[in-house]
């Protein structure tokens, strides 16, 4: 590697004294403080400032309307317009999940079920939200378009057990999703 010689800039006496630049710096921070107090911080408007600085006050103000389509929130299971559980418990999400947050116990669909031809659905499907890292790999790997990361992000609970989303809760949050590929309709 070539050696690059960097010469220090020659400072004038005024600069050597530090004071002018200290005073300048003090003015910069003072300006910020004044703007902040007046609720006119730079960028405050576009960030929905609460009136002090650029900060948004969380539970009162929310960013929900601005969340993009690809936002990765809580992973959920979805049903489709035919009211079919899309998940067939292939367990690929369980396999791909980096923090091992997903635990599935597969089960067989009863023969009297209208969707008996699909044969398989999860008996239990738990996503441990204390482990989930919202990476979205489960959604990406799903061959059945059954698992989606929704825009919900406020997952809270008072116990560890509260933080485990079971199958019922996953379908509750996930809701119905339309416009998906319905490949099982062709199966006789």
């Amino acid at each position: 590697m070539a050696t690059i010689k960097v010469t220090r800039p020659k400072l004038s006496l005024l600069e050597k004294l530090y004071f002018p630049s200290i005073v300048k710096g003090m003015f910069v921070t003072f300006k910020h403080a004044v703007r902040s107090l007046r609720g006119k911080s730079i960028g405050g408007d576009s960030l929905n400032t609460s009136g002090l600085g650029v900060t948004m006050q969380y539970p009162e103000q929310k960013w929900d309307d601005h969340l993009p389509e690809y936002y990765r929130g809580v992973p959920t299971l979805v049903t489709d317009e035919q009211d079919r559980e899309r998940c067939v418990s292939c367990q690929l999400c369980e396999f791909i999940c980096p923090p091992k947050a997903i635990a599935i116990i597969p089960g067989e669909i009863d023969s009297d079920d209208p969707w008996a031809k699909v044969e398989k659905r999860p008996k239990e499907f738990d996503i441990d939200m204390t482990r989930c890292i919202y990476c979205g790999m489960c959604e990406e790997v799903c061959p059945e378009q059954a698992i989606f990361l929704r825009k919900d992000y406020a997952m809270t609970g008072l116990t560890r057990a509260d933080m485990v989303n079971d199958k019922k809760r996953l379908y509750e949050i996930g809701g119905v999703r339309t416009g998906l590929v319905n490949k099982w309709n062709d199966i006789k």
Partner: peptide, 13 residues
């Protein structure tokens, strides 16, 4: 609070 205000934040409120 002052540091927050200087840095365009809110601080403990």
């Amino acid at each position: 609070r002052v540091s927050a205000i200087i840095q365009d934040r809110v601080g403990p409120n």
